[in-house]
């Protein structure tokens, strides 16, 4: 393996190396193709789509489909495009992410640095929340939201996302704080600091990475959610994913693929942006949220 870094390579080695790169680039093409096709389709007029192929570049690029997707496409009963639903998603995601992250931070702090009898059991029980298929709580949740008067509201979805995000946020913070030496907390206790002062002055200042990971994870999860959206919202309060599905799966006679693609990209933009802006934390969250117990 190290021989590659020395400039001299035998012929078979070079061929091996070349095919290695070829395969990697082919796969890169495979992963990029759908995004590429979405983008070019979204700027083609419909007649080009009907006559051209998937990968033909637009001859007369137009932003019309984007404008239509954003402001005037027919979704459900309204002709107002996806923008209202995009805003709904923001109104759901921002509070739900912030609340679940903050509670997760404090929970993780307690479960790692202020353990009490039963706290490990609590943590193990909470872990279950990371794994249950949400189908098993949908019906009671629908009923509960009804009783609380939150059926079909944005607040209802905020509640749902906050509650079911807690397991993950707590897991993230707990595992991060376990790695911070207990001695640091002990030193602060001896210095006279109490529960909250230690949290504010000692733990929070070193928590930036885990906040990033958690916020990104939660944002992606909540923004991309479809199941809760489709079950617990109606009409005007639907999140963008549900609206996109309604747009794409409409039974209208003329399918406007360019508008579909523009709407899909709009729905994907926030999480794509987060991914490209802070990919490091995104991947860390994936692999950390994945298994760790």
């Amino acid at each position: 393996m190290d021989s590659t870094s020395t400039g001299t390579m035998s012929l078979p080695q070079m061929i091996g190396r070349a095919s290695l790169y070829a395969i990697l680039f082919l796969f890169a093409l495979y992963f990029l193709a759908p995004l590429f096709i979405m983008v070019i389709t979204s700027v083609k007029p419909m007649d080009e789509i009907r006559t051209g192929t998937l990968i033909a570049l637009p001859k007369a690029p137009t932003l019309e489909p984007w404008l239509k997707a954003w402001g005037s496409a027919t979704i459900g009963v309204a002709n107002e495009g996806i923008k209202g639903f995009f805003m709904n998603s923001l109104r759901i995601a921002i509070p739900a992410v912030l609340i679940s992250t903050l509670i997760g931070a404090v929970n993780g702090y307690v479960l790692s640095k202020w353990k009490f009898k039963g706290s490990d059991t609590f943590f193990a029980m909470l872990l279950m929340g990371c794994f249950i298929p949400f189908q098993v709580i949908l019906l009671p949740m629908a009923r509960t939201l009804g009783v609380l008067g939150l059926s079909g509201t944005v607040s209802g979805l905020v509640l749902v996302h906050t509650v079911y995000g807690l397991a993950f946020t707590t897991l993230f913070f707990r595992n991060f704080y376990v790695g911070i030496p207990d001695e640091l907390v002990n030193a602060a206790k001896i210095d006279g600091a109490g529960f909250w002062r230690i949290f504010w002055k000692i733990m929070l200042p070193v928590s930036k990475p885990i906040f990033m990971v958690t916020i990104i994870w939660q944002t992606t999860q909540i923004w991309n959610d479809f199941l809760f959206g489709v079950c617990f919202s109606t009409g005007e309060t639907q999140p963008v994913t549900v609206a996109l599905n309604n747009l794409v799966n409409t039974s209208a006679s003329v399918k406007e693929y360019n508008v579909d693609m523009a709407a899909a990209i709009i729905a994907a933009l926030p999480t794509l942006f987060v991914y490209f802006a802070a990919g490091k934390y995104f991947v860390r969250g994936l692999t950390a949220g994945a298994v760790k117990g």
């Binding site: 796969f27 995004l35 994913t241 693609m261 995104f282």
Partner: peptide, 26 residues
């Protein structure tokens, strides 16, 4: 990053894209 970016997408977006690409006819 190229291999990983689809993960940041919603399955709804992924479905929309593939639905278009696998469209019989176009």
């Amino acid at each position: 990053s190229i291999y990983l970016y689809p993960l940041s997408l919603s399955f709804v977006v992924t479905g929309t894209a593939w639905r278009w690409m696998l469209n019989p006819g176009l």
